[in-house]
């Protein structure tokens, strides 16, 4: 009973924390990108100001749009993103809904927001949005393959090391840092898979070079072309929360260490763990979202597909192979 109350109580806490952190990291992201381009950039709280402004504005529904679908999709995107966060270890504490869902569920939940964006874009009845939605679907199909390979190889590594564990459970993964089970060869394989996953993040989040779905100079923000006001604000929030969710997922799999396992801070440990988590989050977001975004131009949609299906998949498969060989040699 207490457990259920705790779980329900955690929902608003995690939701608020996810939104605030998401917007804050978005602000830091924009500021850092601006400073790298020798600009001053917006203040770090700019995303909050943007959301406040968007929430005050009218949501315009185009005449040709399917109204209920058009209005429902932003809500679906945000709720799916928030739900993802509940199944992932977050801020140094275990998943809030521990035991009710595993990595496979998280992967499915991560697909939901892009799907919602796609449906919303199709429902808006605009040409730009339609092209954007087609592109979004293609991008989604292309990055899912390396992502699935990477996740499966991690689980495989765990199961080979310890066959009795429920390897897809995120709390199990984060409590047993996978680097502990590696031989030199499978360590290399894991590192390669880590890099492949970092390449998948910009695609998942729709950042340059994989922002073909909302390419500003080509199709005028594509999928979001017809969205405005409250609906757009919800999409922004969903994207911000998803950034945090994906980065936390990577952290849970690859960088699960907490400070409290090495040092004993007694009752302060929770705070230090949370701070350490935020630093890890920053590093992941900086590398995969900010840095990649500023150093490459946007790709064509065909190039996005070939990048993911060919190069990234190849990298991930190589990692998988190395892990397999490494584990076989050990076994």
């Amino acid at each position: 009973m207490i457990e259920i109350v705790y779980k329900i109580g955690m929902v608003p806490v995690i939701a608020v924390l996810g939104i605030v952190l998401g917007l804050l990291y978005n602000g830091i992201d924009r500021k850092l990108a601006a400073r790298m381009q020798s600009r001053v950039g917006p203040p770090i709280i700019q995303p909050f100001i943007d959301i406040k402004k968007l929430l005050m504005k009218e949501s315009i529904v185009p005449r040709h749009a399917i109204k209920w679908l058009f209005n429902l999709m932003p809500v679906l995107a945000l709720s799916a993103s928030l739900l993802t966060l509940l199944y992932i270890p977050f801020c140094g504490i275990g998943p809030a809904f521990e035991g009710y869902g595993d990595l496979v569920l998280v992967l499915y939940l991560l697909v939901l927001p892009p799907l919602a964006i796609t449906l919303g874009a199709f429902a808006s009845g605009s040409h730009y949005a339609t092209i954007g939605a087609q592109r979004e679907m293609v991008t989604m199909i292309s990055y899912e393959l390396p992502l699935a390979i990477a996740i499966v190889s991690v689980a495989w590594l765990l199961s080979m090391a310890n066959p009795s564990l429920p390897v897809f459970s995120l709390s199990v993964i984060s409590n047993n840092p996978i680097w502990n089970f590696t031989t030199p060869l499978s360590f290399l394989g894991l590192l390669i898979i880590f890099i492949a996953l970092l390449l998948v993040i910009p695609g998942e989040l729709g950042k340059t070079p994989f922002d073909v779905a909302e390419a500003e100079t080509e199709i005028a923000e594509g999928v979001f072309a017809e969205y405005s006001g409250r609906n757009l604000a919800l999409f922004y929030l969903a994207n911000a929360v998803r950034t945090i969710a994906i980065a936390s997922l990577i952290i849970a799999i690859f960088l699960p260490w907490n400070l409290s396992t090495f040092f004993n801070f007694s009752y302060l440990s929770l705070l230090f763990d949370a701070l350490f988590f935020l630093i890890k989050l920053f590093v992941i977001i900086f590398i995969s979202s900010v840095f990649i975004r500023v150093i490459v131009p946007r790709l064509r949609i065909t190039q996005v597909v070939s990048t993911y299906w060919f190069y990234t998949t190849l990298i991930a498969l190589l990692g998988m192979l190395l892990i397999w060989i490494g584990c076989c040699l050990k076994g």
């Binding site: 790298m36 381009q37 020798s38 600009r39 340059t208 070079p209 922002d211 390419a215 500003e216 100079t217 500023v294 150093i295 490459v296 131009p297 946007r298």
Partner: peptide, 16 residues
């Protein structure tokens, strides 16, 4: 041209 390619860093770099 860099901006049209979605390469805003180079746009800012060149305008600087």
């Amino acid at each position: 041209a860099a901006h049209e390619l979605g390469f805003d860093s180079v746009l800012h770099y060149i305008l600087k």
